[in-house]
């Protein structure tokens, strides 16, 4: 028993920090769907420590294979085409981390997330960060930063947005922002959470928890 508990802590310690922030947002013993679950870190943590019924969707078949082989429930699929197959309110939380900017129809994906889940937890890289703005301003070329690391013709991130853009989309769609915070690339919370203008300038990533208003 002690051995298991220690193993769990070990995993949690090595979790991507933004995933840990998400894990902390989720109430234990709830139903969670993680879209783009990668190697399954979050669903593993949520099911083992939080006692959640946590499942994943992942587009990369090699990741799906590895994750199912670890005993985690993951299905091959993607945010754009698979969410519509789930019934209304099938989950308490639907998570989309660092993927919104890469889906084909972000607005529709958000709608589906809030149809099948009570709450949506969304994280995305912030295109409003000062480095991005400055690079575009000075060089006149598409910005390349640690977060936006690939040239424009190679990037899967076809729908970049800023924190301000995201707030506006939530208002248009009538979603209630229950919680939000700006984080740096490593996933540490930024101190500008009270001022969205500053967060939009200094936050490398944003993390939102939404629900239907």
């Amino acid at each position: 028993m002690t051995e298991t508990a220690e193993a769990v802590r070990y995993v949690a310690k090595n979790m991507r920090l933004d995933l840990r922030l998400i894990a902390e947002m989720v109430t234990p013993h709830t139903r969670v769907l993680d879209i783009g679950c990668g190697d399954g870190q979050l669903i593993d943590e949520l099911s083992r420590v939080g006692g959640c019924d946590a499942r994943g969707i992942e587009i990369d078949m090699a990741e799906v294979t590895r994750t199912v082989a670890r005993g985690l429930p993951v299905m091959h699929g993607d945010a754009d085409s698979d969410l519509r197959h789930y019934p209304d309110r099938a989950f308490d939380y639907v998570v989309l981390s660092r993927t919104l900017q890469a889906v084909e129809r972000p607005r529709e994906v958000l709608r589906q997330m809030l149809r099948i889940g009570e709450r949506a937890i969304v994280s995305f890289p912030n295109f409003g960060h000062w480095k991005v703005r400055l690079q575009l301003m000075w060089s006149g070329r598409m910005p390349m930063t640690e977060v936006w690391a690939r040239p424009w013709h190679e990037t899967p991130n076809i729908h970049p947005c800023t924190i301000r853009d995201f707030f506006m989309l939530c208002a248009e769609e009538g979603y209630e922002v229950e919680r939000w915070l700006a984080i740096d690339e490593a996933g540490r919370k930024s101190p500008w959470r009270r001022f969205s203008g500053l967060a939009n300038l200094f936050g490398e990533q944003a993390l939102f928890m939404l629900r239907r208003a």
Binding site: D53, R55, M61, V64, T65, V68, L72, P73, V74, M75, H76, G77, D82, H85, Y86, P87, A90
Partner: peptide, 21 residues
């Protein structure tokens, strides 16, 4: 197989789905 997996999704079942290369 994908049709089976999606039908299971519609039933909110716990399903893993993999295509082996």
């Amino acid at each position: 197989s994908r049709a089976i997996a999606r039908a299971l999704n519609r039933a909110a079942a716990n399903v893993s789905f993999v295509e082996v290369a």
